[in-house]
Design a protein around this nucleic acid. Sequence first.
RNA 1: GCCCUCAUCGUCUAGGGGUCUAGGACACCAGGUUUUCAUCCUGGCGGCAGGGGUUCGAAUCCCCUUGAGGGUACCA
Length: 488
Amino acid sequence: MDNIRLRFPPSPTGKIHIGNMRTALFNWLVAEQKGGELVLRIEDTDQARSSKEFEEIIIREMQWLGLDADEGVGLGGEYGPYRQTERLDIYQKYGEKLLESGSAYKCYCTQAELEEMRKKAAENDKMPRYDGSCRNLSQKEKEAYEAEGRDYVLRFKMPEEERTIVVDDIIRGKVEFKSSVLDDFIIFKSDGMATYNFAVVIDDALMKISHVIRGEDHLSNTPKQIMLYEALSFELPEFAHLPLILDENKAKLKKRSKDSVYVGEFREQGYLPEALFNFMALLGWSSGDEEEILSKEEIVARFALEDVNKSGAVFDREKLNWMNAKYIRAAELPRIVELSIPFLIESDLIDKDYAEENRDWLAKVIDEARTGVDYLAQIPTEAELFLTDIQFEDQAAAAEEFSGEDVKLVFESLKEKLYAKKELTPERVAEIFKELKNELDVGGRTIYHPTRLAITGKGSGPEMTSVISIFGADEVAKRLDSALQLAE
RNA sequence: GCCCUCAUCGUCUAGGGGUCUAGGACACCAGGUUUUCAUCCUGGCGGCAGGGGUUCGAAUCCCCUUGAGGGUACCA
């Protein structure tokens, strides 16, 4: 195979989560790096659980992360259609081929019969496998079943003789399976739809996929698929099975996991796509460099499937937070402002009109608030003190604080100096505090604490120099005056 | 149960026989900066699952045990 062709084939049975998206990312990285194509195929053979809504979410979240496919659902391409339910005629063609060549047969066993078989196998400490009852049904028996109106499935006939099937995996090396552990697995369900194992082989072959990069949970399916490749005389692609992403219990990340797992949740909480991108790339892979904040370009340049780890990786939300915080602080301010405003509106701190009219001031507030957050949904908490009227947790205690010795002197001097400066940058405010300390015979605490309380209503928060710079002289003077009034 | 995979600090990892008294990052702890919290800077704590081999020499190679995960569906 000369062309590098990758595929990401999610099944739209739920919102896309980090585990799947990381698979998409690694496929995308290889395609990007080697100038190959990435195909987005939708595996909706489970017709009961698949839905269009989930398909749309998959596409939207991939776009958000910048993982654009070159071909596939929503994009078209010469190997379509790209939705498996729309490829049924193709699967049927190959199913018939196998039926004719004797590599497949109709099986009329009922679910209850199969259940019985599994139970027996478990009792005998054997891997549950289909016993092949319907392998050599006589014409008469078949007709009898048909007459009964029994549904049938199509099973692939495993070769009789014992042999070893080797999966040559880029990440794991050669993995061997004895054919005796494989049974006559189903390739067509009784609802007439192809099963995953069958459809995936047909599609990968027909779509000329060169590298199948997927989660380790598919490793055990691979020998079955290899048998199908052989039976259909298809050329084998390269395989690479990625380590799984684990939840806090070290189990495969899934819908039931406690922590957030959906890509959408991270987007909604104000994680930046480039931060998630960077973080996911480091789950199971490392550049070998000690620097971990890597741009998309750096990751594309350095990525190699050969360097992917074999063991599962726990999704560490704390580290993602740290990384996201770094990206938030490094990002262009206008973009952060844009992304933060919806959160402020949502928190009822501001409304749309306010956001438009006070954009510059809001930018200052958000610029300050961003230094204290891990993700943008936390912006309102940090910005609140700038956007609401002052509120004391304990008004009586505050009043007492303000009535302290020298407080009035400090406040009045501060006001005077604030008005003496033209533009209140944090640096100038810092100078003012220095002067205050030198000129007034009071301790540092007497200057800072009451001041902070009077202006923000709280005992801690952003640096006073920033707070005063953002509020400006008028607002600060007003708050200092009210504090003094409270003291009386 | 059976099959497959995996195994370095709590977590993500570097390491592919000597340069390892095992390096980095997150988290944690302490100190410094900010007379606050956070940011930031500095330092610290902390690991090769266990047992056998191979070798002059194993985190690195082999075997066993243990542990973890995945698969075992008319889910994908």
